[in-house]
């Protein structure tokens, strides 16, 4: 990316907010179309397939057209799934590289020939398959685990933003090329409040006074996650996590120096080069 992306410090933030903007606009238009085209709300909600969207399309298009559309839709979902697996495995791998996961030394290996972290991929695939085993005996737990995804991601967004607000926005390292300027604090606060409110709502059950089967067990799953995380902190994280930071820095700076003398092209090196001159 350094070589091919003119400026990652600009382009990464741009990719993030553009995808949110375009996602929301297309989502809004699509929902308007669906709401115009819905034929009978009750049939759609109580469809025998269990998939209201499929019923909605079937009512409008007929069964043959729907199958074609749904096959295309599902193929596309498979493509998205592959991208999510890529991202997830890289995150798993980078957490292992910082010695955060059990068996980190094993998980962080990269296969040079295939240019992937195979262990990170396989560990992740194995854990996902374990979740799938719940189909056999505990659908409620399965649903809770699946619904925790958005909650966990939302919490992981709020944490660094809140940290930034607590330590002070002036502590933000220099060098970023996408600053929010004087609106930064407001935008950060809106983000934190929004994440806090939605996280609470995500834990709500589908209706008041739910029965055992209708309860939203996401809160329990999230609790188990936290227990696992805190447990591993005491087992190994406290000693090893990110411990390599400072001396690694020395090595990195040495390499960086070498690079800037040999004038390796790339914007990030340019940034470092300036501070050396």
């Amino acid at each position: 990316m350094i070589e091919e992306l003119p400026n990652p410090k600009v382009n990464a933030p741009r990719a993030i907010y553009l995808s949110v903007v375009i996602g929301a606009v297309t989502g809004f238009i699509f929902m308007v179309v669906c709401l115009f085209c819905i034929q009978d709300v009750d049939t759609v909600i109580n469809t025998p397939t269990g998939l209201p969207f499929m019923q909605l399309v079937q009512d409008a298009v007929g069964i043959k057209g729907t199958v074609v559309l749904m096959v295309l839709f599902t193929m596309n979902s498979l493509g998205q799934g592959i991208s999510i697996t890529t991202t997830g495995s890289r995150l798993t791998w980078s957490f292992a590289r910082d010695n955060g996961l059990p068996f980190s030394k094993y998980i962080k290996r990269v296969n040079k020939k295939w240019k992937v972290p195979p262990q990170a991929l396989l560990v992740q695939g194995f854990l996902i398959t374990l979740v799938g085993l719940l189909y056999l005996f505990a659908n409620t737990v399965l649903e809770a685990i699946l619904s925790v995804a958005t909650i966990a991601l939302t919490v992981s967004y709020a944490m660094p933003i809140l940290t930034l607000l607590i330590v002070g926005r002036d502590k933000l390292p220099a060098g970023g090329q996408f600053g929010l300027g004087r609106y930064g604090a407001v935008i950060n606060w809106i983000s934190v409040i929004y994440c806090a409110v939605t996280t609470v709502i995500f834990f709500f059950p589908g209706g008041p006074n739910p029965s055992g089967a209708d309860m939203n067990y996401a809160i329990a799953v999230f609790g188990v996650m936290l227990v696992v995380a805190i447990g591993f902190w005491f087992i190994q994280g406290r000693k090893q996590y990110l411990r390599v930071d400072d001396s690694e820095q020395v090595v990195l700076e040495a390499i960086h120096l070498e690079d800037s003398y040999t004038e390796v092209p790339g914007p990030s090196h340019g940034g470092g080069g300036k501070s050396l001159k």
């Binding site: 999510i84 995150l91 955060g100 799938g132 399965l142 944490m159 696992v228 995380a229 805190i230």
Partner: peptide, 22 residues
């Protein structure tokens, strides 16, 4: 460290939920 775990769990479960959707 907790944030890293929460994030990793988030991506694992997101991955699982996409498999379940498909």
């Amino acid at each position: 460290y907790i944030c890293a775990w929460v994030n990793v769990f988030g991506w694992w479960t997101l991955n699982a939920s996409l498999v379940a959707f498909a």
